[in-house]
C-alpha cells in the first residue's frame, strides 16, 4: 500500500478514485509519564513520553486508514493529511485522512 501526501504518483496513472478513507486514535499515557511531564514543565525541554505517545497513536491511525483503504480495494492513499487535537489532559486524538485510489 502506497501512502503519500502528494496528489499524484510520478509515472503511474490513477485508474479509479475510491473516496475518502480515515483513521483515528485517541491515546493517553499512564500517570507516571504525566508526572514526569509535570516535572519537565519546570525545566523545559522535550517531553519524550508524549512524543512517543503521539508517534504510536499516529501509527495506529495510519494502520486504521490503511485497513479502510484495503477494504475498498485501493492500492494507494493520496493527499494524506494529519490533524491533532488534545481531548483532555495527557490524551490526544490523532486523525489522518486521504483519498483512496487504485493505481495502474
Amino acid at each position: 500500500m502506497l501512502i503519500t501526501n502528494l496528489e499524484m504518483v510520478p509515472g503511474r496513472r490513477v485508474l479509479e478514485h475510491l473516496g475518502l478513507v480515515q483513521g483515528s486514535s485517541v491515546r493517553a499515557k499512564h500517570v507516571g509519564r504525566d508526572i514526569m511531564a509535570g516535572l519537565k514543565n519546570i525545566f523545559g525541554g522535550e517531553l519524550k513520553g508524549y512524543t512517543e505517545l503521539l508517534q504510536e497513536s499516529r501509527e495506529e491511525a495510519m494502520d486504521r486508514m490503511q485497513s479502510q483503504a484495503e477494504a475498498v480495494g485501493a492500492n494507494a492513499v493520496l493527499n494524506v493529511r494529519f490533524s491533532t487535537s488534545s481531548v483532555a489532559q495527557g490524551a490526544a486524538e490523532i486523525y489522518v485522512y486521504g483519498t483512496a485510489v487504485r493505481l495502474e
Binding site: I3, G11, N41, G44, Y50, L54, Q55
Partner: peptide, 16 residues
C-alpha cells in the same frame, strides 16, 4: 522516483 510518507514529531515543554 519511488515515494514514502515520512513524519517527524516532537513535544516540547516551556520552562517555569
Amino acid at each position: 522516483y519511488s515515494q514514502a510518507l515520512v513524519t517527524g514529531n516532537v513535544v516540547i515543554s516551556v520552562d517555569y
